[in-house]
């Protein structure tokens, strides 16, 4: 009985460590894929995002937001997100292969 209780307690710890099955960064970044392609791999003129360096993605989004970097559409998107969300999305996108 003790063994079972220990197992239950262990799995409870695992569950509480993972508050969500889907990480917030991944859920936020999933919206990007409708333009940038599944897994962040684009066909055609729109750039791919998969595997870009995290710092580069965050800097690009900040520069789109401030206007430092000119863009066709990305300035409109970047203005809608926070710095914290940039970091979450960039972390997920940078890990895509």
């Amino acid at each position: 009985m003790h063994k079972i209780l220990i197992l239950l307690a262990a799995s409870a710890t695992l569950l509480s460590a993972n508050a969500f099955a889907v990480d917030r960064g991944e859920l936020l970044a999933s919206s990007c894929m409708s333009c940038h392609g599944p897994g962040g791999k684009s066909k055609g003129a729109i750039p791919s995002l998969a595997g870009l360096e995290k710092g580069y993605i965050v800097k690009s989004l900040q520069d789109f937001k401030s206007g430092a970097r000119p863009a066709s559409v990305m300035q409109r998107h970047a203005k809608g997100y926070t710095d914290e969300e940039f970091a979450l999305m960039a972390d997920y996108l940078s890990k895509l292969k």
Binding site: C35, G37, P38, A45
Partner: peptide, 25 residues
């Protein structure tokens, strides 16, 4: 969330992006 909007005029870049958007979605 603010900051959005529309292009006031069309251009060739958006024309190319539209095709790329379709293939990607």
């Amino acid at each position: 969330a603010g900051g959005g909007g529309a292009t006031p005029q069309g251009d060739e870049l958006n024309h190319a992006y539209a095709e790329s958007w379709a293939q990607n979605i």
